[in-house]
Design a binder for these strands. Structure first.
Lengths: 118, 118
DNA sequence: ATTCGTTGTATCCGTACTGGATATATTCAG
DNA sequence: CTGAATATATCCAGTACGGATACAACGAAT
């Protein structure tokens, strides 16, 4: 059972949620995080990123976080975001699905294969 | 290093490759497999499925497989597909990325969370 | 303090992906 | 033979995506 999927959650949206699961961050930082994590194989353009953030905020999955931090020099341009409770729930569901797919891929022998470079 | 990504591979395309990694299958069967594997949280409509199959075939990632099987009653409507060498390579790359994301999600504590039902 | 390159956010536009509806052909059961 | 289910294929509207563009604020250097 368990079949509910209120907001279908696009690939880009999950990348953002995953980035925010590690802690509050601002848009530009999220871009860099995604690029690093995926070794550049996934890159969010500014268009996708900010549009996705707006939508996630409108859907109540993320919210703007107060900027106050003493270890960082304060930058008026930055807008920090963090996950809401609902955001955690949705991200968790998606992460489980992801883990399941990865597991299925492993069972199919996809991970042991030595791929050609080009 | 390692940053090459010739065909970006859409979400639906990966689902198809994953299904075919388990063995040859026909379109309708792939639909069912994806639905079952994901408990219905991912469903490929016919439009998406057949269009994706065509594109994958055109890109040389999958190829039509001969229908001959003695344990199945032969159905002239069915068209079976299987992964090509290149298809295995691409699927492997994507599976590794997926595993990496799942791992990152786990590190962020996303998997331990007890989510609310609705 | 003014200039300049960088950082950071935001919007626009063309392209591509998606899901659902529709159409058609084949198989199977009665 | 007839009708329901299976299976493939195409069309269409809605949406997501990536890159380009624009602009504001910061930091360093003069």
């Amino acid at each position: 059972m368990a079949k509910g999927n209120p907001p279908p959650l696009t690939p880009a949206a999950f990348q953002v949620l995953l980035a925010l699961a590690r802690g509050r961050a601002h848009g530009y930082g999220i871009m860099g995080f995604v690029t690093e994590l995926t070794d550049g194989s996934v890159q969010l353009g500014p268009g996708t990123l900010y549009r996705t953030l707006s939508r996630l905020a409108a859907d109540g999955l993320v919210e703007e976080a107060p900027d106050m931090r003493e270890d960082e020099p304060h930058d008026a341009r930055r807008r920090y975001y963090q996950l809401t409770e609902q955001g955690w729930d949705v991200a968790t569901r998606e992460a489980r699905l992801l883990a399941r797919l990865a597991s299925a891929a492993a069972e199919a022998g996809l991970l042991d294969r030595r791929e050609r470079s080009a």
